[in-house]
Nucleic acid binder design. Structure first.
Length: 461
RNA sequence: GGCGACGUAGCCAAGUGGUAAGGCGGGGGUCUGCAAAACCCCUAUCCUGGGUUCGAUUCCCAGCGUCGCCUCCA
């Protein structure tokens, strides 16, 4: 089987052929101006799954993700709060890690910052000027879009589209409405740097081109980011990179994640309609949220719905139940579980090979879980536990871990055990009403009792 | 206005030119003292109208609806 990845540039699923070893992957990270919302969680979780699956397939992956730690919004917000912009950015960078760690988003190998790449950015801007792709004006340095023949290829927009859609105030000094700032002159803000063109700071798009070049090289395998960055950000990034290096393609596979909608519109900091990831995690376990985010293909739009998360919670319970299955057969030479096991692996791989189809992969795992439950009475303990370990390892490729709600450290445990003991005696005495009352009352306290042939077991509900 | 995406059961959501995964919910059953969990069975003809085809939910056109990008944005 071959892994195929949809490439935004061509709009097609293409067989994955890495440039070399390791596979190079760049993900457009956050501008840490506010706390990460569910849109961020969706994107980073899906990108994490892409990386995990590549590693599962045996590729070594070098994953780089930036932080745009200085930009207009950060400066504005910090100034309004009377704070230092860099300090502001650090605070929300921490907020990012706090929440993504809980969601098991694996850390990138490096997190370059704009503020740590100024010399490289200045070098690259100068190179574009020298190459005839950029020019200085009284407000900064601009990229000359007309000098890059393929401009618009990624987002599928022509020069005419650009002109027609130009709603931004026309800058008389720009040669073309499509041109954008590589360097912004600025003598007022606290965070500026000297440059050959005057004091200022980088434009947004150039940072990614520079960081990719410095950390991964002139051409990379995979570039990820939200669909809202396709234009102009990625279009410009591509133009800057290829104009500077004259190497094509800059990126082999452009992967864009769908956007998260809330009440029918895009969730965004700027719209003020966002639900923070941390907020959701106050009452939704991280693995449940992760399962929810992965229940939609990465390229699709996710319509955020608390009700759907609740449904996912129930689905997660079902996954947990698979781990409670026990092999009961002593002579157990039932090999049906082996058959199911290899079928599950195959279905999982096929789904993920097909453009990282996590929803389908999850479906395959639910099938596998049902098979484990069904076959466990006729299988040996060893076979069941090895099936379960494959089950958890495949879930692990999706970054989903199975955790029973923790009861071990609970002070109430001895008392619950005691009640269960008393109830056992009541049941032996056929005192059903009292026994049921204990069960119901414990249930109201989120302690679930199940009477099995081997006795009563209880767990946190 | 330009460009693009999407519209699948009560809900979430995959997918295919030959009558549609999975999860939640609902109904029935097995098991159980009764439950719970688990297991088994049932629960959709794929927005509308044309067209192409032996045959379309899947391809093409139009319409309706929703969303995104064109400005900062994951």
């Amino acid at each position: 089987m071959t892994l195929a990845i949809t490439n935004t540039l061509t709009g097609k699923k293409e067989p994955f052929k890495p440039l070399g070893d390791p596979v190079t992957m760049y993900v457009c990270g956050m501008t840490p101006k506010d706390r990460p919302h569910l849109g961020h969680a969706f994107m980073f979780v899906h990108m994490d799954v892409i990386r995990r699956y590549l590693e599962y397939r045996g590729y070594a992956v070098r994953h780089i993700q930036n932080f745009t730690d200085i930009d207009d919004k950060i400066i504005d917000r910090a100034r309004a709060a009377g704070r230092d912009p860099l300090d502001w950015a650090r605070e929300y960078t921490e907020a990012y890690f706090e929440v993504m760690d809980r969601l098991h988003v694996r850390r990138a190998h490096e997190y370059p910052l704009v503020t740590g790449n100024i010399p490289g950015i200045i070098h690259d801007v100068q190179e574009l000027i020298d190459g005839g792709h950029a020019y200085p004006t009284s407000t900064g340095v601009y990229f000359d879009a007309a000098t890059f023949e393929d401009y618009g290829a990624l987002s599928g927009r022509t020069a005419e589209d650009g002109a027609a859609g130009a709603r931004i105030a026309v800058d008389e000094e720009k040669r073309d409405p499509r041109d954008w700032a590589l360097w912004k002159l600025d003598n007022e803000s606290s965070v500026t740097w000297e440059s050959p063109w005057g004091r200022g700071r980088p434009g947004w798009h150039i940072e990614c081109s520079t960081m990719i070049r410095r950390t991964l090289g002139e051409q990379i395998d995979i570039h990820g980011g939200g669909a809202d960055l396709l234009f102009p950000h990625h279009e410009n990034e591509l133009a800057q990179a290829e104009a500077a290096t004259e190497r094509h393609p800059f990126v082999s596979y452009w992967t864009h994640t769908g956007l998260v909608l809330t009440d029918g519109e895009k969730m965004a900091h700027s719209l003020g309609n966002f639900t923070t990831t941390a907020d959701v995690l106050t009452d939704v376990p991280p693995d449940v949220l992760r399962l929810y985010l992965l229940s939609v293909h990465y390229r699709s739009t996710l319509q955020f719905s608390p009700a759907a998360i609740e449904q996912t919670r129930a689905g997660y319970e079902r996954l947990l139940a698979v781990m409670r299955a026990k092999g009961e057969s002593v002579d157990g030479d039932c090999n049906e579980l082996d058959v199911e096991l290899s079928a599950a692996r195959q279905a999982f791989d096929a789904a993920m090979d097909d453009d990282f189809n996590a929803p389908r992969a999850i479906g395959a795992l639910f099938d596998f879980g049902r098979a484990i439950n069904r076959l466990s009475p006729a299988s040996s303990a060893a076979d069941v536990s090895s099936a379960q370990s494959v089950f958890t390892s495949l879930l692990g490729v999706l970054g989903i871990e199975l955790h029973e709600p923790d009861a071990a450290s609970d002070d109430a445990t001895p008392f619950i055990d005691l009640l269960v003991q008393v109830r056992r005696q009541l049941r032996e005495a056929r005192q059903w009403e009292l026994a049921d009352t204990i069960r119901d009352d414990l249930g109201a306290l989120d302690v679930v009792l199940e009477d099995t042939p081997d006795g009563t077991v209880w767990r946190r509900g």
